[in-house]
Amino acid sequence: MKVTSQSYEKSNKIETVKYSRLSKTEYKALLNASDMYLDRQRAGQKLLNYLCDKYGISQIPLIVTDTPQKGNGKSKILGFYRHLLNAKKGQSITIYNLTAVKKKVVSIKVFIDTLLHEFIHHYDTEYLKIESAHTAGFYKRISDLKNKLS
């Protein structure tokens, strides 16, 4: 999907997420989740639900797969945000729990970074009402959210 220059510029200018105070409870619970994909899915869903409620946007299902990441070792897909216009039931965040080459469980920090990355796509789309693009502002929003949660 091609992002309009207007959305790109707006995304690049917004460097923080709303609210300076966020609960750390759900983040810490995810940080302490086991390597089991279902445990990560449960804890990750609680964090997503909290964030969606906090920002007044639709809750989005988290799918954690017990399959390896897609990729060849050089470039890999850790997760993805699925958003279908006018189809709330079509929204989801998917995260792979196993590495692409060695098929080992991804570290919890990589898992959380991926979850927050995909959440910011949802935040951009639903809260900021912009097409989500990988701008400098996008990555600053991720960093800002992570700092407020940790």
Rank of each mutant, 00 (worst) to 15 (best):
D144A: 06
I95K: 05
G79K: 03
K129G: 03
G137I: 07
V64I: 05
F80G: 13
Q45N: 09
H117R: 01
I95R: 05
T16H: 08
A29N: 12
R21L: 07
M1V: 02
G73F: 04
S7K: 04
K10C: 01
I95S: 10
G79T: 06
K13W: 04
H134G: 11
V101K: 08
Q59E: 14
V64C: 09
H121C: 02
G90I: 00
L85G: 15
S11C: 14
D124H: 07
Y55S: 14
K148Q: 06
M1T: 05
Y81I: 01
A133K: 06
G71W: 08
N147I: 00
F111E: 03
K102N: 15
T16A: 09
Q45S: 14
Q91I: 00
Y123G: 10
S58A: 09
R141I: 04
G90Y: 03
S23R: 01
K129H: 11
S132K: 04
R82I: 01
M36K: 09
I14F: 06
T114H: 07
H117W: 01
T125E: 05
I60M: 02
Y37A: 07
K89Y: 10
Q6T: 14
D124Q: 08
T65W: 05
N49M: 02
V105P: 15
L51P: 15
I130W: 00
S107F: 03
Y50E: 07
I57A: 09
G90N: 08
G73A: 08
